[in-house]
Amino acid sequence: MKRIVAREEYCVGCRLCEIHCLVQHSKSKKIIKAFREERDSVLPRLRVEESGCVSFALQCRHCEQASCIEACMTGAMHRAPETGAVLCDTDRCVGCWMCIMVCPLGAIRRGPDSHVASKCDLCIGEDYPVCVANCPNEAIALREEDEVNA
């Protein structure tokens, strides 16, 4: 499967990825409306980590051996068979936060208004995740697995 790769040497810390992620996961998907009216009900699914001049976008890496799936007691955290993405079925999630506890990257957060886990879904329905498509410096890339390891 394709994986998101952070190229921290080129991340400029503008956080446009966070902004576009929030919009993508809002109800309206309209940027001004999402920020004005839905601000309390939607969170970006990724975060830009920063230390000094170094920064990078951190989102779920959809691990091959996903601790969150193993730790999930309801089976809410699962792997989508067609894409290989690790997703959270919000109907089954009971908010025990075990996934948050075991995620080695800290890429899962509590959802904003409901008692369920919130994480990167690789932007279902889009050709590219919006963070990749909207990074002005191509510091977030989508690459095939073998390119990632190379």
Partner: peptide, 13 residues
């Protein structure tokens, strides 16, 4: 003001 969403991209850049 009708378009600004206070996202602070300008501040950071």
């Amino acid at each position: 003001p009708e378009k600004c969403i206070q996202c602070q991209v300008c501040v950071r850049q």
